[in-house]
Design a binder for these strands. Structure first.
Lengths: 165, 165
DNA sequence: ATCATTCCGTACACAACCATACTATGTGCA
DNA sequence: TGCACATAGTATGGTTGTGTACGGAATGAT
């Protein structure tokens, strides 16, 4: 396996930048479109993400939820605040450990979620239309590798990454 | 044109979700890594992005800069505020049109940029390492198509996209 | 039992982004 | 000229996210 350190000989800097920019761009576009699309429902993408996760694991402590969603405790706390005000979730104290507050969906949230789930699927269908399955898989694998590289650079590889002072 | 509405027959919902999540994830990871990496330099990724663009076109009006960077006028205004405080850019009034303020890099910014440019390249090299050129191109094309779909859904196609009430 | 440590959630401060509304200025049309 | 309209930048307020610091509660060691 001659996996070169660079993607390939002759790769132009602009190619790399273009790709980095594309990811950033597509991600931002998708988020903003989905947010706009979601706005009539009265929730945001981040809020939806929280609710969606709770449909699979209701009653999680805030910390675990934050970890699963890969978001800070503070950010999640603020999200829960708004969701609670909107009547979509409820905080309930854990009886064994008085530090933790578990988050539960309300019936109202369950109703909303059903609508949004299907809508999310339609959104994905539309956005992925005209893309051959094969390309989707190659792109998926590429992004996966990218993700691994990024994760790897968090752990041991940081000395090759920056000033570090 | 039989561009199917779905990417391909048999595409699983989970495939679509996985891909959407991958983009989101990779983008966020990359941003956060780069931000962390950039922090010793005293600027953020967004600020760096502004400066980088100015190296190619110094003296742009705020509005044009905002358009080029695809960010709102307000967001850019706030960015410029901070960059000005940090002594990295300067606002100067246009003589012909007293409404516009043109943004210029300071010498200090030019020094900083030189360092960050090369570092950014190293970062990209590292993150893209082990990815065959061919895959990068396929993934690029896929993301491009995705972007076009997203942009298209802004204009005419919204009736297939959501509740719209 | 007490003390240090660790963990949970929150408070606070800040960066970034969006949408809307506003001021000041320029432009075009009657 | 004068008035409607468009544009540049700012103000304001809301959402999401980060990092740091803090109080309350559990835990482990002595």
């Amino acid at each position: 396996m001659s996996t070169p350190r660079k993607p390939a000989a002759g790769t132009d800097l602009d190619d790399e930048l273009r790709f980095a920019y594309l990811i950033h761009d597509v991600s931002r576009l998708r988020r903003s479109m989905f947010d706009r699309w979601l706005s009539p429902h009265g929730i945001t993408r981040s809020q939806w993400w929280v609710l969606a996760f709770l449909t699979r694991q209701d009653g999680l402590p805030q910390s675990e939820l934050a970890h699963e969603l890969d978001v800070g405790k503070v950010a999640l706390g603020a999200l829960i605040d708004r969701l609670e005000v909107a009547g979509l979730v409820r905080r309930r104290a854990d009886k064994k450990d008085r530090r933790v507050k578990r988050i539960f969906l309300t019936p109202r949230a369950n109703g909303l979620l059903k609508t949004v789930w299907r809508a999310n699927k339609d959104f994905n269908d539309q956005v992925l239309s005209g893309i051959p399955m094969k390309n989707l898989h190659v792109a998926g694998a590429t992004l996966d590798k990218l993700k691994q590289n990024l994760l790897a650079s968090i752990h041991g590889d940081t000395d090759a990454m920056g000033p570090q002072d």
